[in-house]
Every structure is written in structure tokens, then in C-alpha cells.
Design a protein around this nucleic acid. Structure first.
Lengths: 148, 148
DNA sequence: TATTGTTATACTCTATAACTATA
DNA sequence: TATAGTTATAGAGTATAACAATA
């Protein structure tokens, strides 16, 4: 007999990959903005935590240091992030959004959110409220930091 | 001013990547079972739709034919899927889970669901109900087929 | 010695374009 | 001509292991 938590797990397992695919396709589709989900999340984190180190970023995004090193490398290459060695501890990096990074993040977020909003607009207000609440719950449950 | 749909979109954008990461890490972590999320979803689809073609599979998973071709190739190589040309139309493939594929799918699902259940068990029954309902709503909204 | 980050290596996922085989 | 799949190519995300530089 499945417990309520089992049913819940099943619905998470069914729905999350579907929604993720939607988000990914949407983010990829904007010419010029064109960010992967991890890139988007990294930029969002750096906006919240200017001067974060690579380790901070990797920990909060939940990925390995080498992965994050490569990802950041790409963002630096695109001029979206500035990478300096910390004066206090020269092993550490100091990561910051550039002006371009900031504005691209904002534009990408607006586009993606607008698109998602349009889809979610097909739900009733009550359904929207349920979804908002549920995903807030999941964010606190699984999030190292929550708020993007 | 953000509308309720905007708030909803924001919460989706925040939470879904987090949960996805959890699911991915969990699925990858079982030695022997070791499936990626797309592999898992492909196996699940083939259990529901035996004798599906590659195009069916790609459409329902929501990916390109070449991607799915490679993915299936890997599954065939691991002995999880049987790939035959259809007698009726020899351009089409007939895909089926092997016995190993069926049992591995079941084991992987059980493991992942158990792990997720344990996490979700930290929520109140009311919160679990909200999450279950919300993700059902999102499945119907974004799903080509829903049920995994 | 321990910590921070990079490089090397190896997979998977993903897409587009070009191709083959069949209808 | 159109459809089903594969191959070629390329880029991103991911991880582990080995390394360099700094503390």
C-alpha cells in the first residue's frame, strides 16, 4: 500500500522532469539570451551574493567544483561574469556579474517567466495558488538556499 | 505588479531545478541500477507502450530523434531494451523492454521513490497533499502523456 | 597538511545537418 | 516525395582523479 508520501513521491517523479524540459527549452530558445538552466541559476546566485567564491557557487547550485569551474569559465568568456583572485586569500576567487551579465539575467528571467506565466495562466486561480504553495514547500525542503 | 500567475511562474522556476537535481543525483547513485533521468523515462514509457517506435518514444519524451536514437542505443547495449524492425513497415522500429530492463526499471523506481518518500515524509500530511495535487496539475499542463 | 581551484578524462544529453533505407 | 532512423558533428553538464598554488 502506498503511503501519502509515496503518492507524493510518484507525482514528483512524474511531473518534475516534464516541467524541467519545458523550462530548459524555453530558456534555450531566446536568441542572444540563450542560457542553460545551470548558467541561469549561477548568474542568479551571483546577483544575490556578489563576490561569492567558486566553492560558494558550486555548493549553492549543488554541483562539483570542476563542473562549476567550467561553467564559470564559459560565463567569463561570454563577458557575463568577472573573475578575480581574492586579495585576502589568493586561493579564492571573487565572482561578480558584469553589467552585461546583470542585464542578460534580467532579460532571460523576464522572458522565461512571461512564457511560464502564460502557460500557468490556463490554470484557475485556486490551482495557481496550490502550485505556488507546493513549489515553495519543495524549495524549502530541497533548497540549500531557496530563493533565486 | 506580479500577477498570481507570475508568482506561480517564479516559484516553478525556483523549485523545479532544485528538485530535479535531487532526483538526478538519487538515480545516478545506485550502483548497478544507475540510470539517467531520460533513460529512466524512456524505460517507463516502453513499459506502458510495448512495441513503440523510436518516433513515438522521442515524441513522448520530448526530445529529438537523433538524441533518442543514441539513448536507445545505449539501452540496447546494456541489454535493457530489444530493438527490431517492424514487419509491417520496415522503416519503423519496434522497441520493447527486455526482462532485465523491466526488473531494473522496477528496482530503480522503487529506490528513487523510497528515497523521495523519505524526504517528503518530513512534510505534514496536508503539505504532502498540496504537493501531490500541484504536481498532478503541472503534469496535465505540461505532459504529452502524463503518467510515468 | 588542508583548502581552493584547474586540468585531464570520460560519459550522457542535446541539437542541427546530412545521409540511408523504405514507403 | 515523404517518413523513420542513423551518423556526423558540436557544445554543455556532469563526475572522479590528479594536479597546482596558497594557506
Amino acid at each position: 500500500m502506498p503511503t501519502p508520501a509515496d503518492d507524493c513521491a510518484r507525482s514528483v517523479l512524474d511531473a518534475v522532469p516534464l516541467v524541467m524540459r519545458e523550462i530548459r527549452a524555453e530558456m534555450r530558445s531566446h536568441r542572444g539570451l540563450d542560457l542553460s538552466v545551470p548558467q541561469f541559476r549561477a548568474l542568479a546566485f551571483l546577483r544575490r551574493r556578489p563576490a561569492a567564491s567558486l566553492s560558494d557557487l558550486a555548493a549553492h547550485i549543488g554541483t562539483s567544483l570542476p563542473s562549476m569551474s567550467k561553467l564559470v569559465n564559459g560565463l567569463v568568456g561570454r563577458g557575463l561574469v568577472e573573475r578575480d583572485t581574492s586579495a585576502a586569500d589568493r586561493r579564492r576567487l571573487t565572482l561578480r556579474l558584469t553589467r552585461e551579465g546583470t542585464s542578460l539575467l534580467q532579460a532571460a528571467r523576464a522572458e522565461t517567466q512571461t512564457h511560464l506565466s502564460r502557460s500557468l495562466g490556463r490554470l484557475s486561480p485556486e490551482e495557481q495558488a496550490v502550485v505556488t504553495r507546493a513549489l515553495g514547500i519543495l524549495s524549502s525542503l530541497f533548497g540549500q538556499e531557496g530563493r533565486t
